[in-house]
Write a protein that binds this DNA or RNA. Sequence first.
DNA 1: ACCAGGACTTAAAACGCTTGAAATTGTCCT
DNA 2: AGGACAATTTCAAGCGTTTTAAGTCCTGGT
Lengths: 355, 355
Amino acid sequence: MLPEEHCRREEQLDDGGSARHRNGTHKRPKLEDVATRVGLSTASVSLVLRGVPGPSERTRERVLRAAADLGYQVDRTASTLASRRSRLLGVMVDIHSPFHAELVEHLHTAAEEVGYDLVLSTLTRTRDEHTAVETLLAFRSEALILLGPTAPADALVALDNKAPVIAVGRRIAGAALDVVRTADDDGVGQIVDHLTGLGHREILYVDGGKGVIATDRRRGYRTAMRRHGQGDHVRVVAGDHTEGAGARAVRHLLDGPRLPTAVVAFNDQCAIGVLAALARAGVAVPGEVSVVGYDDDTLSRLSCFNLTTVSQSAREQARHAVTAAVERLDRDRIEPREVVLAPHLVLRGTTAAPA
Amino acid sequence: MLPEEHCRREEQLDDGGSARHRNGTHKRPKLEDVATRVGLSTASVSLVLRGVPGPSERTRERVLRAAADLGYQVDRTASTLASRRSRLLGVMVDIHSPFHAELVEHLHTAAEEVGYDLVLSTLTRTRDEHTAVETLLAFRSEALILLGPTAPADALVALDNKAPVIAVGRRIAGAALDVVRTADDDGVGQIVDHLTGLGHREILYVDGGKGVIATDRRRGYRTAMRRHGQGDHVRVVAGDHTEGAGARAVRHLLDGPRLPTAVVAFNDQCAIGVLAALARAGVAVPGEVSVVGYDDDTLSRLSCFNLTTVSQSAREQARHAVTAAVERLDRDRIEPREVVLAPHLVLRGTTAAPA
DNA sequence: ACCAGGACTTAAAACGCTTGAAATTGTCCT
DNA sequence: AGGACAATTTCAAGCGTTTTAAGTCCTGGT
């Protein structure tokens, strides 16, 4: 039998892998199916499919064609196992956070550019950081990008032993960990600068609770107020990261003797709550009270809120996080690095000079 | 050498797998490491770790102990490959949607109960449904749960050949696919019933664009208006699923001769936009205008909005979706099933009798 | 005619786990 | 003591890729 003929025979042997599974699902074609279809070894097919130089042009075309015909798709699990690399970055997110959503979006593009994929694991009411991270590890993530982790520093350091950890958005007290964040105190400082520049004195701060981030922002507020000689006007009301907190804070204020001329909220969600409550109470913004948020998340940009806020540059943070991971994985960086980005004020419609 | 002694020797042979990788990362312990540590075969260890009956109590304890000591964690990729089952449900979500966030939360708990895990793949501006689904398949998801897919019905059917597809939240015209959704037209109908019951006649609808869901809701509005003899008052203004659309719609209305007495928005986000714009314009809600949303997502529940809306019972939809997947995978169900849940009105503070 | 060297290909050994069959050990009878 | 049987444990063959070392074929040069 001539080799050419043999080959031709094989190419027509099967009908394209349309064998149906008992549940009606086609069985997934594998490398071998593609290989026998073109009469080559799985090795060659693998080479072609990964774009490794070596196979001839003719082979390349035939393989690509056959793979397309069969609807072949590489099996990640198998290739991860074989290559001992998953090329996967594990990302822990709070699925309810709009800001995280933004980060994930940019992480995706950044990761893709350097040839990595993302696997997401989300925090929910019934799913804590521990399980989220375990999941990521079970998928063999090569690095862990944790968005706003709340775990104690030493737990994160321990984790870092299993896979490089990149903490995003949170300061970690002198730990040997990669951190990407913005200078939260500086951000709030900029807000206060802006407001005092407009002539505000009575600037109230709606707090964000007990996390590290909240602490930094609160400190930024206090420091800036004192810097402007407004130490006496420092006023912090309890709150958290939700719209509800903002609304409660306003109700609390309305009970008091008089309103401050400006309200700075821990984040945008909280600020939206403030805005909504003020609107309902018939208080003009920014006419009577100026309001500022933090995060520049999708909500704040909406024309209906048009909130002055501080941008955390999700895009930049995402890029730095991915870069940090890649440096660890592909460039053997050992020393931890902390990237602190400068936040910047986004002036929109909720701030103006006091009446 | 006595067997007992041999065994003891081996248990002390290594130090717990603390060998450090060049990047400072511990190398991941494998089944074999646990096995040699307790002087057993990997088969036994595997059995114990998966809780398969067979191994003796003593063995069980020793293995569990050793695994914990080493910090052993099963490698999903390897076990998926070996067992030819990933026990993974692929979920496609729009990471910016609060409603999807809710669904994911419930999907997680539902999946866990039946021994499956979730892998999430998200839609972003630069990541379309196709890539999202490819990713899911590359992870070897056994079934695909697509939240609000926009792909044409035939594309979904084609996909269903590769892995069972469960479309959530969207009607699919008579396709051979599993669908879990709520009766959107009925939901909007309930809203109109409620409003007319309160005495409203001029009820305006802010549309959601051109998706199937938007079509159903719009139809529900029209039908219900006619049913109540208010066909003349049917009025639909263009919009979409964002706060911006709601706000624009209101600005448009304010330019007109006079306001309707009630506004029904395509979804909660849109309704929030309506609410914000009305508040800014000094229009009292529900005093002058009643507002209703759709989805009962986290935003609407906030006291600062306290939006009357329709609940899509995320929890129930999630459960049904997981059940559908499991029936396909473990119980060989072949015939497609459509689960249509009844939505229910959630009365809150933004509706009242017209002035 | 022969061989070096390049251009392609491929055989086969991992990768870390699961699993059905086979082997081992122990127990209880007779 | 011998055997049957149940309880444990292990063997070894995969799973679908990757990857390295080893081929196979040509092409030219001598």
